[in-house]
Every structure is written in structure tokens, then in C-alpha cells.
Computed example of a mutant assay.
Amino acid sequence: MIDAFVAWLATTPGSIALHESLYMYAIVETTHVVSITLFVGTIAMIDLRVLGLALGRVPVSQVLRRLLPWTVLGFVILIVTGALLFYAIPERTFHSFWFRAKMLLLLLAGLNVWRFHRAYGLSPGAWDMGPAPARARFSALASLCLWIGVIFFGRFIAYNWFDCDKPQPAFISAVSACRSFTP
């Protein structure tokens, strides 16, 4: 069912126009990459503060209040540009091993953010100026690792090493849901 939707999406005039555009695809992709610096940069600052490795004299609550609006702005830009990049090349992207790995890490990173904000919100309480509890530090470290992984896997989506139109190991064909290749 998803395969049929993705195949249909690839044939829509907007998808074709965006993919074949001389400048628009490059503008969308560049905006996506630049917004990564805003989003992940602010997340990294927050995580490093929770880990006690940066901004040690600034309360965690103040760091969160000042940086989260910028983080949300970066996230919104990333979602919009990411959706447009998917829309431009939906079949290849959907069947990309790298895309699927990135989406898994995005899901895990989102759950980590949700868990952190559910536990601490914008006011960490007693550890606002002191060392964070072990669970908060673990969440910050997991966040850094997950976002690095998202960037890493996202960067590899552009390469065709594991595209379905090439013979692939059975594992890659299974994970990517390649229909066209039979081992």
C-alpha cells in the first residue's frame, strides 16, 4: 500500500518539477542542510549544558528557555524541507537503507526528547545550577549520539550504494523493501 502511494507520488507534476528543477531542489537541499546547524547546534548546546560540559554558570532552565524557540524553528524548517526532499524523489528515498536508518534514529531521538521534557520540562528543579541527575545526563548523551547518527545516515541518502536497482545483499534488500531485485 505504501509502495503504491510512493509510486503515485513520484508521478505527480510537483514531484517531477521539483526533482528536475535546475535550482529549486538545490535551494531546498541547501536550506535543509543549513537548518541542521540551527537545530542540532541548539540541541548540542542544551545537551552539553545538561552534561555539565558547557555554560556551567547558566541555569539549565535559562538555557532551555532561550534556546528551545530556536530549536523549534530549526525543527520546523527541517520538517518542511525534508518533506520536500522526499517529495522530489519519493521512490528512491523510501527504499533507501540510509533513509530508513535515519527515520529509526529520528523516532528514537524524538522519544528521548519527549522523555526528557516529560520528566523535567523547562524547570529542572534542584539541579538547575548543579550537576544533572544521571538519567538527565544519559538522555543528553543519547541525544547527542542520536542526532549525530541522524546527520550521518541522512548524509548518505544522496549516495546510491544500496539502491534497489543494483544487486544487494539479502539483508539490504529486505531492510530497504526492494521488490525489483531477487537474490
Rank of each mutant, 00 (worst) to 15 (best):
S176P: 12
S123H: 14
T81A: 08
I148D: 03
P69R: 10
H19N: 14
A109V: 10
W8H: 01
S35H: 03
N112A: 00
D128P: 08
D3V: 06
C178S: 07
F181T: 12
A7N: 09
I43L: 09
I27G: 05
V28W: 00
G149M: 05
Y23P: 07
L84K: 04
V28D: 05
G74M: 08
N160K: 12
A44Q: 05
T12F: 11
Y25L: 00
S15L: 13
G56E: 05
K102W: 03
L122I: 08
F99V: 06
L106W: 15
Y25K: 04
L18E: 10
V80N: 05
P59K: 11
T42D: 07
K102R: 04
L67I: 01
G41Y: 06
A17C: 14
R135P: 08
V72K: 10
A119D: 14
F94K: 00
R100K: 07
A44D: 02
L105N: 14
A17R: 13
S180V: 14
A174M: 10
S180Y: 11
G121T: 03
A126R: 11
L106P: 04
I2H: 05
I151T: 02
A136G: 02
A44F: 07
L144Y: 05
K166A: 01
T42N: 14
L22Q: 12
S21T: 04
L18G: 07
S173D: 13
A132E: 07
V80P: 09
W161Q: 02
L108G: 12
R118P: 02
V33A: 07
T71F: 12
I16E: 15
P69S: 05
S21L: 10
I172A: 13
L73A: 13
G56I: 04
F39P: 00
M45L: 12
V76T: 10
V113C: 03
R135Q: 11
S35V: 09
L111G: 15
I157C: 08
M1D: 02
L107G: 15
Y87W: 12
P169M: 00
P183L: 04
T93M: 02
R65S: 11
A101E: 11
N112L: 07
H32W: 09
L144I: 15
A4W: 06
R92S: 06
F171T: 05
T182W: 13
L146E: 08
V28E: 03
I157G: 05
T12S: 04
L68E: 03
S61A: 10
Y23R: 07
P133C: 02
A170C: 01
F138K: 15
P90A: 05
P90W: 01
A10G: 12
A134N: 09
L108C: 11
R118G: 10
T81Y: 12
S15Q: 13
Y120S: 00
S139K: 00
W147G: 02
E91W: 03
G74E: 06
W147S: 01
W161R: 07
Q168E: 09
L67V: 08
S143V: 11
G125L: 08
F138C: 13
P169C: 02
P167A: 10
A140E: 03
H117V: 13
F75P: 05
T93V: 06
I79M: 15
Y23L: 04
P167C: 02
A54D: 09
R179Y: 02
D163P: 00
